[in-house]
Design a protein around this nucleic acid. Sequence first.
DNA 1: GCCAAACCTTTGACATTTCAAATATCGCTC
DNA 2: GAGCGATATTTGAAATGTCAAAGGTTTGGC
Lengths: 171, 171
Amino acid sequence: MTESESATVDLEIIVQGAQEGKKLELRLWLRMLSTTKLISQEIRRRLRNEFGATLPQFDLMAQLYREREGLRLGELSKRTMVTNGNVTGLVERLETDGLVLRVTPDGDRRVTVAKLTAKGETLFSAMATAHEGWLRDMMADVDPEIVNELWRDIGLVKSSVSNHLSGADFD
Amino acid sequence: MTESESATVDLEIIVQGAQEGKKLELRLWLRMLSTTKLISQEIRRRLRNEFGATLPQFDLMAQLYREREGLRLGELSKRTMVTNGNVTGLVERLETDGLVLRVTPDGDRRVTVAKLTAKGETLFSAMATAHEGWLRDMMADVDPEIVNELWRDIGLVKSSVSNHLSGADFD
DNA sequence: GCCAAACCTTTGACATTTCAAATATCGCTC
DNA sequence: GAGCGATATTTGAAATGTCAAAGGTTTGGC
């Protein structure tokens, strides 16, 4: 029935020779990537089954939920880490579904501001509650202390990566 | 250098109220996700600029590089965590580029086996070397001890998640 | 006021992604 | 040896994703 046959897949197979103390970073990366994919797929499946929504839509609405006055599309693009062109279509579809509203402010006609509708706020609120529970469940076997450490240490990775990007990625 | 002001996008904004000891799992997830996106985008950019390849193509070739005799498409699908239908198109394009070969074994005509060509092996070998270096560079500021810990602890997360999937997904 | 540079969004071409349904083949039972 | 269920891949529709180029708008220098 499910399309994915058996899913404890292992992207990490690529490495295999890394246990000798070399390629630690590659090994970590592959495990991060496969774990993230696993969690994403689970969340996507549940969002779809229980709310008929997609993960990118959820991500976008999450940003708008925090900014009730709405956000410019460029700002949405930065916060969701999605390209401008992509945001255009995403917002378009959400507007069709009546979850998001698009407005052009008087001051600057280059700008489009997206904003959650009442319907959008209601839906997102429900999804967010469920979403948080799913994550708690999925990570139930992990000691909260470890969760905390991971949060802190992944922050170190994020900082390091941010400081070693090739493309000009600055504000 | 904290990532807060300089360009490092922040999916984590969704949380904000989590620092009080609640929603630890959500907070971790958002940081994992944003970090993974950041690294993925950097790798994608470099693969594109330096090799004219895409990340999914690289992932797929990585699996084939480890199995010189080739892999069935279903097996490729599992290992790359990509759906069957997706693998079809991916392999199709790689074959067009002369990097991969498709063969139907005599024994079972339902099956398609994909295999790297000599050209594919040469290209992947170069990409893999570069790829490993990129990761080492990006994580250069992180203590190797921490990298090791992260690898181990993310393994705990992965296990926990695997044991709490809704779809029947076991090996 | 004018114009060039900068800014914001959209568009278009293409690749990737999922899901569900369709195809094709194999294995087994009778 | 006909057919049924299981297996393996492909196909098709819709959404997401990147990138580059094109469209409007605004701004600043003159």
